[in-house]
Computed example of a mutant assay.
Amino acid sequence: MTFSLATWNINSVRLREDLVLKLMSGQGPDVLCLQECKSPVDKMPLQAFADAGYGHVVARGQKGYNGVAILSKLPIREVGAHDFAALGHARHIAGQLENGVTIHNFYVPAGGDKPDRAINDKFGQKLDYLTEMRDWFRDNRPEKSILVGDLNIAPREDDVWDHKKLLKIVSHTPVEVAHLSDVQAEGNWVDVTRQDIPQGLLYSWWSYRAADWDAADKGRRLDHIWASDDIARSAHSSRILREVRGWDKPSDHAPVFASFDL
């Protein structure tokens, strides 16, 4: 079977319910993974999504922040939800499709403003979270799996608008990139987006602070789709739907897409 998948930090699923429905009707991915839902599961507009064809859901939520959800046209069952770094945050959910593919949906901590754990606890939490992800995937080597989400790190030089200027900015510091690389290596994960689009500047996030985000184009690729190496070659049709960042009252992230023949 071929199925399409999208990942999107929605920055409040209740506030942006109409945008989710617009993406569902206009693009129709078979599986839509959301992060930063900012809502308990029972307060998410799940009936509206079911009416749009997404009747299968696995999710973890919290009031006002964090929260991850997998909305699917295809039957899916929950197979895990881990509290990496014991933060007590709803940042991970895993579901398995009937074809045996496991989908991990992550919202990695942003890490605050200062890239120094000695003065910024949030940065230390981010590094600890990534370390525990690395160790978990080392001990539970993924097979027939997809990892998606807002990983809050732009790893490559061409994943940011200015590599040199961002080297000391949280999300692109060498220590963060090294931690993410370790997660990828221990799980034998393949960056599907860059497998399909190996060269060129590529962004999925643009700050709200820019007066004209589109003209300034100071973006970062914080949102990712990875596949375990046993199925990575089945992935294709990767793209980032930049136009979504320009919708009315948007999230600061754009959705990332890929398709899989499995």
Rank of each mutant, 00 (worst) to 15 (best):
R245C: 06
S234N: 13
V244M: 10
S171Y: 14
D182K: 14
S234K: 15
R134I: 07
W8N: 05
K122N: 02
A50H: 06
R117S: 10
L127R: 04
W189T: 07
G88Y: 11
A86S: 13
K249N: 15
L127P: 03
L166Q: 06
P142R: 04
Y65F: 15
R245N: 09
W247Y: 13
R138M: 09
A52G: 03
G55T: 11
A258P: 12
S12F: 06
R220T: 01
V183D: 03
F3A: 12
D191Y: 06
P250H: 08
K73D: 02
T193W: 05
L87G: 07
D42C: 13
D196R: 13
D116P: 01
P40L: 09
S238Y: 04
D116K: 02
D182E: 14
V244L: 07
R220P: 00
H82D: 13
L130S: 00
L71K: 07
V31K: 07
K168L: 15
K218M: 06
Q62Y: 11
H92C: 04
Y208S: 00
N99K: 01
I231Y: 09
G64M: 08
G200D: 00
A215P: 07
L262N: 12
S251F: 04
P29N: 07
D135N: 08
N66P: 05
K165Y: 05
H104E: 08
F3P: 12
Y208M: 01
L23E: 14
C37G: 05
L262C: 13
D159M: 01
D30W: 04
A235W: 08
L15Y: 09
R134K: 13
L87K: 12
V68G: 05
H236L: 12
R233D: 12
A235T: 11
L241K: 10
L130T: 02
D223I: 00
G149T: 10
V177I: 12
I169A: 10
E176K: 00
M44D: 01
W206D: 00
Q27M: 14
D135E: 11
E143F: 13
S204E: 00
G219V: 00
W161T: 02
A232H: 03
D252K: 02
M133D: 04
K43G: 12
A52W: 08
H56M: 05
I93H: 04
P45S: 10
G246R: 09
N99T: 05
